[in-house]
Structures are given as structure tokens and as C-alpha cells.
Amino acid sequence: MRIPDARGPASAQLTALLADSGGTLEDRTALRPAVDAAIADAADVVRDDDLQLTLFLLYELAYGGVDGGDSLEWDPALLDARAVIERALETALRARVSVPPPPSPDAESVAAALFALTGEDAGPSLARYVAKKATEEQFRELLVLRSVYALKEADPQSWAIPRLHGRAKAALVEVLADEYGDGRPHRMHSAIFAGAMAGAGLDSRYGTYLDAVPALTLASVNVMSLFGLHRRLRGASVGLFAAYEMTSSLPNRQYGNGARRLGYGEDVTWYFDEHVEADAVHEQIAARDLAGGLVEAEPELLGDVLFGAAAGLTVDGWSGGDVHAAWTSGRSALRRALPAVAAAGP
């Protein structure tokens, strides 16, 4: 991924050393004090552009990579800075996310608790807006916002595979295999999403629009990476993924309907239609076998499964609320305007 623009002192320090292929040891050790200062100054870590971008780039070193960062993935100074932001983020989430009371630690009760939690979601208001009202411009903004996750869909959840066993592991891999196209690269959800972006005249290379997306969009993917990259948080990773799958079918039907209303063809609607059918399967497996199976095997993880589910829903709720508020008041939901459609529109 190309190096994005900095959003404050911490990300400025990081992007500068990336531009210098890692810079000097002093450059790298200077990241930690810059991060410390940014955390001390931040009113809200979750919505802080500088910290969320810094964390996002530090994580991206472990995914598709960032220009200039090939030798930095395991750099001790960068990992030290990353750990400080991770602690601040986890602390903020544990303080602010309200977690439902624990059910009894058997698979059926865990599934029921997760269906109750994900069902009480105030309703897919953003999805309803997209179905009925969104303009073509707003629909393209939606694709840009979703691209941060969708172009690497399922990758953050894959970190958990070697940390699980038995029923939970088989369930996670079954769902992920479907997300990854079951051996057919053109059916990978990330590839179908890239096709949708192309169909809407957008560039599907990872990171093209990163400068345009707000902190909360980065935060929602950062939370997945945080949970996925720490074995300690495997319960939260599983809970978040289950909740994500359980709140996907119905909104995706609305997104697909919005795309059809705007006149887009199957190249754009396929991604959303695919998720209606896929996630109706995935949610059953994720709730019962993945989350429920994990709790039956490791009952002490029940609290984190619920925390992960609630944390994912909460951050996505904040993010969706901001987007909806921007659109209904006639503003862009992005930090920067998108270039006009390059290819022919719908």
C-alpha cells in the first residue's frame, strides 16, 4: 500500500520513517514518545485520526504491507509503539462498551445470547437509507468506507485459526473458506468487492482512498486486528466475527436494493447479494459452533466472546451513525471528496 498522508505528530513520525525505508534507529525509537504524547492529548482514542492511522499502518505491515515497510513488521521500536496504542484502545473499549450479562456457558445459550444482542441493534438505519435514499455519490462513498475492510475481508479473523481447536476451529475455517471463495479466487469476497468498486468507477487497489476515510472506519478494522493478533483476545476475535456475520444478511439486502435502485448492474450488486445468502449460513455456524463451541471448550472466554461481539457492534454503530448524520445533513461522510467518476457511471 502507498504511504498515506499523516494526520498528526505520531502518524507524521511513522510516515516519514516509512518514506525513508525505516530511517535510523533514532527515527524509530522517536515513534514511542510521539505516540505517548498523542495519547495524552487525545480526547477520544477511538475517534483520534492520528492514533488510529498510526495503529492502522503498524498493523498493515503484517497484512499487505506498506511501501518502505518490508523490514519493519517485527521492529521492536515499532512494536513497542503499537503496544501502547493497543493498550489505550482496549482500555477505552472495555470502559465504554456495554456487555450483556453472561448466559450459561453452553453453545445453545451462547448462540441465543448473541442472536439477542445482535437483534436488538436499533435496526439497519444506514442500510435503510442506502436502500431508499442514497445518491450515487453517497453510494460510492459507502464503497470507499467499506473497502478498508472488504478488500481484505476475513483476513483479520484468520489470525485466530491456530489459536482455536476442535469444533470452534472447524467452524471458523468453514466460514473463512467460503469467504475466500472455496478455492476459486474470483469468488473471494474481497475480489467480488473489488469488482463492485470497479463497476462504480472506483480504484480497487488497497489504500487508494485511505486519506478519505475517517478515524472510526480505521478503528473498526483496527479493533479486528487487535483481537486477531493477540492470542489472549481470541474470545473477543471470535465474538466480534460472529456478531459481524449475524448483522450482515439483512443490511446487505438493503445495500443491494440501493445499488439496483441507482441503476447499477450485477457487477456491483453481486457482492451484496452474495452476502445475503452466505451470511445467513455463516451466522448459524458462527453463533453456535464457533462462538458456542469455543465457550464450551474454554468457558473462561465467555466474557470476552460477549465483549468482542459488543465492541464490534458498538464501534460500527458509532461509525454508521456518523455516516448517516453526514448524509442526512447534506455533507460528505469522507474527509476528502472523491474524484468524479472516471469511467461511465451506472
Binding site: 442472536f115 437483534g119 444478511s249 439483512l250 439486502r253 445475503v276 445468502e277 451470511d279 445467513a280 449460513v281 451466522e283
Partner: peptide
């Protein structure tokens, strides 16, 4: 479901 015979999650609503 709107995609019968497959489930589309409507049973929850």
C-alpha cells in the same frame, strides 16, 4: 425468505 429455498435471515426480523 426472498431467496427461497435458501434462508436470507428474514426469520430473525
Amino acid at each position: 425468505s426472498t431467496i427461497k429455498p435458501y434462508c436470507d435471515g428474514t426469520h430473525k426480523a
